[in-house]
């Protein structure tokens, strides 16, 4: 019975993983290859595609200020929202990792925003909350922080920050992952640090953070990719505007494909996105050996 491999089990194995295998081939691998082909063509859905070689790529890189702008906007969005989201997540995870009353309830409640933050309902609410006559202006003017109301959504200087704030608000799932990581840290480490007279901050920076680096690493990778792919919020709350100040990459890609019907051009954009994301992920992975601390397994 144990660990035997024969033709019958191989067949059974493939039958059971066939749903995933089929989905992977039909909805991922084949489309990726198709998209590579279309990225070398000019194609508007109506007439048939024309092979243009590297023209699309050349135009995107040399001659498309909106592409460069969307890249800039996406980078600013991703790398401001990322530390905010993870910082919040870590702070609350530490606060909720204490044996106090109600922490179980708090943990659950604070997870709610990340459950609904990507929904259209919240985007629609956000748009009104930060609009010129929205509640946020009334509050800030009422508190004397602002002299006169600002149209946060309509002003290119502030529009992106309303989206960053919404992203930071969705800290729930990294928070739960941090919490699970915190529970893994052996208490004896804190006990021996306490004997050595370490204070709370020393314990936090010398034990908690280093022991948590594998979890931080995981969260950084997952959240970077997720933030980079943001679409719904920019589409509904700011519609990419004003003057492209919130035109994130995927929204620009969507507009090229489905508003201007430039399927070939948009496919090139998709491939550039894939390359950029691969490079970012690779850099994070490469950097990990300098800051991620893995406790040697089986050591005592």
């Amino acid at each position: 019975m144990r660990n035997y491999v024969n033709e019958r089990t191989t067949l059974a194995g493939y039958i059971f993983i066939s749903p995933w295998l089929f989905g992977f081939l039909a909805f991922m691998l084949v489309p990726v290859i198709m998209s590579l082909y279309y990225s070398f063509t000019s194609y508007n859905l109506v007439s048939s595609s024309v092979f243009v070689g590297l023209e699309n790529y050349k135009e995107i890189i040399m001659d498309d200020p909106r592409f460069l702008n969307s890249l800039k906007v996406t980078f600013i969005y991703t790398f401001t929202a990322l530390p905010l989201r993870l910082g919040f997540a870590l702070l609350l995870a530490v606060l909720f990792n204490q044996g106090r009353r109600f922490v179980g309830l708090y943990r659950t409640l604070f997870y709610v925003p990340s459950l609904i933050g990507g929904s259209v309902a919240i985007s629609v609410v956000w748009r009104q909350l930060f609009g010129y006559s929205g509640a946020m202006n009334d509050i800030l003017v009422g508190l004397g922080i602002l002299k006169a109301p600002i149209g946060f959504i309509g002003n290119p200087k502030t529009s992106l920050w309303t989206l960053v704030l919404l992203a930071a608000w969705q800290f729930g799932s990294p928070m739960l992952i941090f919490l699970a990581g915190l529970k893994q840290i052996p208490i004896r480490l804190y006990e021996s640090a306490a004997i050595d007279g370490a204070n709370w901050w020393q314990k936090f920076f010398r034990i908690t953070i280093p022991m948590l680096t594998p979890v931080i690493f995981f969260n950084v990778v997952m959240q970077t990719i997720r933030l980079f792919m943001m679409f719904t919020q920019a589409y509904i709350i700011t519609e990419g505007g004003p003057i492209d100040s919130t035109m994130v990459y995927v929204l620009y890609l969507f507009k090229q494909a489905f508003q201007y019907s430039s399927m070939g051009y948009a496919s090139s954009l998709a491939w550039i996105l894939l390359i950029i994301l691969s490079v970012i992920t690779l850099l994070i992975f490469k950097s990990s050996k300098y800051w991620v601390f893995y406790e040697a397994e089986g050591e005592n």
């Binding site: 991922m28 489309p31 198709m34 980079f228 890609l253 969507f254 948009a266 998709a270 491939w271």
Partner: peptide
């Protein structure tokens, strides 16, 4: 796991 779905939206749409 790390693959962004949006990358294949155009060929999927065409399919």
């Amino acid at each position: 796991l790390l693959f962004p779905q949006q990358v294949v939206m155009i060929p999927q749409y065409l399919m």
